[in-house]
Design a protein around this nucleic acid. Structure first.
Lengths: 210, 210
DNA sequence: GTTTTCATTCTACAGACGTTGACAAGCTGA
DNA sequence: TCAGCTTGTCAACGTCTGTAGAATGAAAAC
């Protein structure tokens, strides 16, 4: 297994070949990082999965750290949701989409978020970007931030519980059912104290400074 | 630094000395495991933190895996809550207690739950034990399990978001405020579809096999 | 056809790791 | 005082890791 391949049919252009190899490496890296996390994933294992010499991984990506950075780079695609949806429903739609399509690349990020600082920072940023809108709609800035944090926490809890911890009632559940059950929760978190214009205010609790 | 200590005053009994050393090691282990997770924590680092030779750690705990197992063993203390509290409030009280007292030992477990199978299993079990009661009070078994899973997910999300990810609005928030904001969520998750007609017992006596 | 470039591999290093076994020194009981 | 057990250390092993540099051979350029 020393030669690169007989190039049996016709010679593949060099650029194309290289791009394909890089893709294979990156793909293997994502797979392994998302299955085992940063620390337990070795360059050698990635190389083996991509059927390539370890040194080639270094040559293309510089270091394990950079390879990881490339593997967890997520496209930050904005999920298209109805613009007239309420905020809570918008957030739920996003969560629902993540539950529908198994988040390949994101799992690599999530799996390492508790042990790898860069991954943690990535998750914080992604969450802030998604759930940050909750802050603005709050009475006081502090409570708004707290509510945004709780929406973030719930979101991440559900995804972690489903895909990484594989909690019993969650791992095989229907995404639609999940979001439906969560809807009242998200509404309660987002449509807080100042209830928008609905019928009545169910909450008369006053906040006190801690 | 070769001798064990001059035993300056009077000789400390052997048992006591050993127990104290073991405790020091275990304490250092918990600290490091909870800060860096299983993989990034080395026996050598634990030994150094405990001011002890690495070989002694092995001698007392057998292996890194066993040391970890000992470090994450949590006492499973049942939080004392008012027995007449509704289920949702009971679960919230437990969460609140975890937020009040920084969960030293539990963090070691949580930090590694995404990369260490044994830790994951520990978390699953702890969650099932705590939130499992939700299942029984459901209409159908499947939806009950899902709701229990979502309570678990929310719980773990909040703790992870606060202590490990350190999400902005969450890390410094007042525990009381957190639980108050979460109350409607937990109620919505637990007191589902069938609204429990006030003072009635929400628990059905029959259960079905999985 | 010759030279250059480049994708890829081979070999190896230096450090860190978990773990082991031999050994020193103290406490304990006779 | 002696032997025995226990606490603790030292030095080392074998392995695995990320990484570096030289070597190879095919494609591209001339």
């Amino acid at each position: 297994m020393k030669t690169v391949e007989p190039a049996s049919e016709f010679p593949v252009p060099r650029d194309e070949r290289r791009q394909h190899t890089q893709e294979r490496i990156l793909c293997a890296a994502r797979e392994l990082f998302s299955r085992s996390g940063y620390d337990r994933t070795t360059i050698r294992a990635v190389a083996a999965a991509a059927k390539v010499d370890p040194a080639l991984v270094m040559h293309y990506f510089g270091s394990k750290e950079e390879l990881f950075g490339e593997a967890i780079r997520v496209d930050m695609e904005d999920v298209v949701v109805g613009p007239e949806e309420e905020l809570a429903d918008r957030l739920l739609s996003k969560l629902g989409d993540k539950l529908e399509a198994e988040p390949d690349a994101q799992l690599a990020l999530l799996r390492s978020m508790l042990t790898h600082p860069q991954a943690a920072e990535g998750v914080r940023r992604a969450l802030a970007r998604e759930c940050g809108q909750v802050v603005g709609s709050a009475i006081g800035g502090a409570e708004g931030a707290l509510r945004a944090g709780l929406v973030s926490a719930t979101t991440i809890g559900v995804i972690v519980g489903r895909y990484l911890l594989q909690l019993d009632g969650l791992k095989d559940a229907d995404p639609k059912e999940i979001t439906e059950i969560l809807r009242p929760c998200f509404r309660a978190l987002v449509d807080h104290g100042v209830e928008p214009k609905k019928t009545r205010a169910p909450r008369s609790k006053r906040r006190r400074a801690g």
